[in-house]
């Protein structure tokens, strides 16, 4: 099938939407505090674990009732609160003191790596200590098995989370846009990004702006993770170590300095990861008649894109002069 089905495209779009949310979060803290947060993917895993716990404790009995679909609203919201809090704790306990001490960019990166190691291992500990019959069982299982595909006209059967992911990403994107352009606080956030000293002079509490940016970043990571849970072949904290590179890929393709760029870049990288390997192996099969499995090299495509963009156009999508191109 060189011509992809609508269902395949939609599920690729779902993967793209999840990565768009994650890349946006990492860009947000980079723009405000200049920190490349390596703990971001672990926060997404925390979001996924939230979904697991909800599924297991409260939604297991509701499988056949329409109430079941409230999971896709409850779980992102709960995950957002949890991971937002984790991000705030991270900022207050490690990042802010180090910034105040004048630690350099690499030092801050190491600090986020160290925090990631701590967080990831604590998460492992938490998961293993929870009684084996509840979460442990879910860890092994494909969480998608807990869902029933719904029938969509024209498309066919789809897993419901794949419909909710793009909607969620769109809502968050629009919400953030409105927040940044229409509210007093959002405007002062943009001012603090543009020029922190000037923002301080006109009386903006830059410190609070940073705190909120970390909360928002963590919250969006949790939201994305809570729905991404269904895409993971068994949820493990170690998965974060590979996810983080895809997230950075999205964010860097977007330019690392633009929230809209990150949304676009994340979407591009995430959907590409799903589409390109399948497309190449389909074409290969058509030409040679042999089947090759490229899906396991899925992440390689985004890594290559990341390195390519860094070396060729380090400013990313946001750096391209779109207007200039249009004018010719």
């Amino acid at each position: 099938m060189v011509l992809p089905s609508l269902e395949f495209l939609l599920s690729s779009a779902a993967a793209g939407a999840a990565l768009a949310l994650l890349s946006m979060g990492i860009t947000l803290t980079y723009m405000t505090t200049r920190v490349s947060n390596f703990a971001h993917a672990t926060m997404a895993i925390i979001g996924a674990v939230t979904t697991l716990l909800l599924l297991d404790r409260f939604f297991a009995g509701l499988r056949d009732s329409p109430l079941y679909y409230t999971l896709f609203l409850v779980s992102p919201l709960l995950a957002a609160v949890v991971t937002g809090a984790v991000a705030v704790i991270m900022y207050v306990t490690t990042i802010r003191p180090l910034i105040k001490k004048g630690t350099g960019l690499i030092g801050l990166m190491i600090a986020t790596l160290a925090f990631d190691i701590i967080l990831n291992n604590l998460l492992t500990l938490f998961l293993q200590l929870t009684p084996a019959q509840t979460v442990g069982r879910l860890l092994e299982a494909n969480v998608k098995g807990y869902l029933v595909p719904v029938s969509i006209p024209l498309v066919g059967y789809m897993y419901p989370h794949r419909l909710f992911l793009p909607i969620l990403a769109l809502l968050v994107g629009i919400g953030l846009h409105l927040f940044l352009t229409r509210t007093q606080f959002g405007i002062s956030m943009r001012a603090s990004i543009e020029n922190p000293q000037l923002a301080r002079i006109i009386g903006i509490n830059v410190e609070r702006v940073y705190l909120v940016s970390w909360f928002l970043s963590g919250a969006t990571a949790g939201m994305a993770g809570s729905l991404l849970a269904f895409e993971m072949p068994g949820i493990s904290p170690a998965a974060a170590y590979l996810y983080i590179v895809s997230i950075f890929a999205g964010s860097i393709v977007g330019g690392l300095n633009s929230i809209y760029g990150a949304l676009a870049g994340g979407f591009l990288v995430g959907s590409m990861e799903a589409i390109v390997p399948v497309f190449i192996s389909d074409v290969y099969q058509l030409v040679t008649g042999e089947y090759i499995d490229l899906l396991r090299y899925q992440r390689m495509f985004s890594f290559l894109l990341l390195i390519l963009v860094l070396l060729v156009a380090p400013e990313g999508l946001a750096g391209i002069k779109w207007r200039g191109i249009r004018r010719g």
Binding site: S36, Y241, M300, F303, L306, L310, L311
Partner: peptide, 30 residues
């Protein structure tokens, strides 16, 4: 060094990390 010559600080760190993960955890492990 192709990256190390062209990039700075955090960009460089991310590029080298991505290169390493790509080679060891994706290419060789698969």
């Amino acid at each position: 060094s192709y990256a190390a010559v062209r990039l700075k600080e955090d960009y460089l760190a991310i590029a080298l990390l991505a290169f390493s993960e790509m080679m060891v955890q994706v290419f060789f492990a698969q």
